[in-house]
């Protein structure tokens, strides 16, 4: 069984919102019709988005970290939003695990949005139907596109490659390896939704300098009792050769 998913590397995301705008750009003109905006150039602009980038500050000054946190539908393996839908508009595809809304069946009752703990669904105020991330289902299978372009728009747009896309049920896929080897985790595991999307944690990138990196302990001159020349601290010819 296939379960397509995104893996988002919080260590790499710089919070540029390129995934947000590329997602909106692709999906507002896609087969599912526009993602409507309300008052886009006025006061209190609002609109329908599949993907949002949020920012959190972790820690207290001066010891803080900024975490940019892209959030979209996690395509849960046990999605609570699907069984509650009275019309069957919300469904999870058996072939690739993508959770989709059929905009022609949705009655806009909002029950599925209540049933998603992550706030991943948004009601389109113009069309009055529920919308959410489709993993660009109208891109990823499009044989008219070059193979390398058959990925969700957000993944292609990310300038830092913070977004990986693939099948998390295939142990050899890029996403499975990333989850396994870089500590990939799921959001709100307490509700048993088993999100397919995973996040890779922030890792502190430190240069660790050890004493023996600066001065060779096994310098053969030392073993022979000869003093190396020039002495430590004196300028060397090329800053390398003497020690």
């Amino acid at each position: 069984m296939t379960q397509l998913a995104l893996v988002i590397d919080l260590n790499v995301c710089v919070g540029c919102h390129a995934c947000v705008t590329s997602c909106k750009e692709w999906n507002t003109q896609g087969e599912a019709g526009p993602l409507s905006d309300q008052n886009p150039y006025g006061k209190d602009p609002s609109g329908t988005f599949f993907n949002r980038v949020q920012t959190f500050e972790v820690g207290q000054f001066p010891d803080t970290q900024t975490v940019h946190f892209p959030k979209s539908c996690l395509h849960c393996e046990d999605p609570p939003c699907v069984p509650v839908c009275p019309t069957g508009a919300s469904h999870k595809r058996a072939e690739d695990g993508i959770v989709l809304v059929d905009y022609d069946k949705c009655i806009g009752c909002k029950y599925c949005a209540w049933a998603c703990p992550y706030g991943a669904r948004e009601l389109d105020e113009a069309q009055k139907v529920m919308k959410k991330c489709t993993l660009c289902v109208d891109r990823i299978y499009d044989v008219a596109l070059a193979e390398r372009d058959r990925k969700p728009a957000c993944v292609l747009a990310c300038p830092t490659s913070a977004r990986l896309f693939g099948d998390i049920h295939d142990p050899q896929s890029e996403v499975s390896i990333a989850i396994r080897e870089q500590g990939g985790y799921a959001l709100m595991p307490e509700w048993g939704t088993h999100p397919a999307n995973h996040y890779l944690p922030r890792r502190r990138t430190e240069a660790r300098v050890r004493e023996e990196d600066l001065q060779r302990f096994d310098n053969p001159l030392k073993v022979d009792g000869l003093l190396p020349k020039p002495a430590t601290g004196e300028p060397a010819l090329d800053d390398v050769t003497s020690w």
Partner: peptide, 29 residues
């Protein structure tokens, strides 16, 4: 509440503060 900001974004730290929610003028959420 079983969920917290810690489980919501998956960062284990007692002090987490939101700085942006991705929209200034509100959203469906």
């Amino acid at each position: 509440p079983l969920s917290s900001l810690q489980t919501a974004i998956g960062v284990k730290h007692p002090h987490i503060a939101q700085k942006a929610q991705g929209a200034m003028g509100g959203s469906f959420n």
